[in-house]
Design a protein around this nucleic acid. Structure first.
Lengths: 207, 207
DNA sequence: ACGCCGATGTATCGTCTCGATACATCGAAC
DNA sequence: GTTCGATGTATCGAGACGATACATCGGCGT
């Protein structure tokens, strides 16, 4: 578990169009927020797992079949391999995209992937994920804040600076999420017939 | 390499006083900036490596000695184990603390550890690390910026938001580093005999 | 025509990290 | 005197990463 994130992202990209590994990697970097890029040492094993699980196929289907034992470790002829998502892969993606619980937002990376494929996500699920993520990050912020308060005297200037900067980042993230949630709510109200705009009961959050 | 980071942090903490794993872990979380904490699955293997390399010792030295083969996997009596840094460990720490090249700042985590132990670092090395880190993060920022410019049309709203937030964070980090560098320079000028205190040229205020 | 080179492209290896899990010890509450 | 939560040590399997090797292709100089 938790190692779903790469699989999820790959399925999401292949959903849009078939691709080979090299391009997948570039697109993955964009999708993951522009910073962190995925290494081949992660990507190819992930593709192999997806193939084994029947969620993607290749041009040349015997490529990933088990080798006849003693053959030299596959030296010689290696060309492009185009990966395509299968029907099962699409099902799995639909399943992942509709998760709205803690597994969707507690891990920041996985949350990022969900966000990257939000256009495949139902509006109410989007909102629940965003709100869940906000709660998670708020909790982190509060923990960091009280830790900073507790250790203010004990730690040296540089460590304090590090913590201050970290707290600032987390704080910014909360505000960013709040903005996203606002926008999402506005969109929702515009497109939905809705429960009458004067009828605003104080929302029993969660269920 | 790059897996030095945990070793470095452990040596730094044990330099201050002997400790057992549980406390080490809590301190590690503080030192690493308050967010990310180290798991036991990382910590104990790291301690084992340090022990094997002769950089730390324990109360009970035969604890990490190779087992007599068929013995049950060390069930039964397990108590506190206090780890102490050795002379070689101190040497190694001094060596790590004096590194001022890219290996000290290209990786953000490792940079964080350097920062956490800056009080053991020479002033000129401190400045070089901070400036190197700034350059690295500036390069990241520029890459992200141009990537954002290139893909503005092609990507959807949510991915764009993710990238925008990422860019904002990196930007903030650059400014934070610039502040740290300024403070560091001021400290340097105050404590050093320096190039004559009446010689104050009008300060080019930086970028 | 030929070789070379940098971009494209696939793949594996060793090392490390993580989350989950199990197990042990102790003090205080009941 | 026993249950319980904090303290504490330890391992395992899955997976991620950096480094490295190897293969293919298009263009460019000569």
């Amino acid at each position: 578990m938790g190692g779903e994130m790469l699989e999820f992202a790959i399925l999401g990209l292949l959903q849009q169009s078939p691709m080979h590994g090299y391009e997948l990697r570039k697109r993955l970097a964009e999708v993951l927020g522009g910073l962190r890029s995925i290494s081949y040492g992660s990507l190819y094993p992930a593709l192999k797992r997806l193939y084994a699980a029947g969620l993607v196929t290749t041009d040349e289907p015997d490529r990933h079949a088990p080798l006849p034992a003693d053959a030299p470790p596959l030296t010689g002829r290696r060309g492009k391999v185009v990966y395509t998502i299968t029907a099962e892969g699409k099902e799995r993606f639909a399943e992942l995209v509709s998760q709205a619980g803690p597994e969707a937002y507690d891990d920041g990376r996985l949350f990022g992937v969900h966000l990257a494929f939000f256009r495949h996500t139902a509006a109410d699920v989007r909102l629940r994920i965003l709100e869940g993520r906000r709660r998670t990050v708020e909790r982190q912020r509060d923990g960091l804040r009280s830790s900073l308060a507790r250790t203010r005297e004990r730690l040296d200037r540089y460590t304090l600076e590090l913590q201050r900067h970290g707290l600032d980042s987390v704080d910014r993230e909360v505000r960013w999420l709040a903005e996203l949630i606002d926008k999402e709510r506005i969109d929702g109200e515009q497109s939905r017939p809705g429960p009458a705009p004067g009828d605003e009961r104080p929302r029993t959050g969660d269920g």
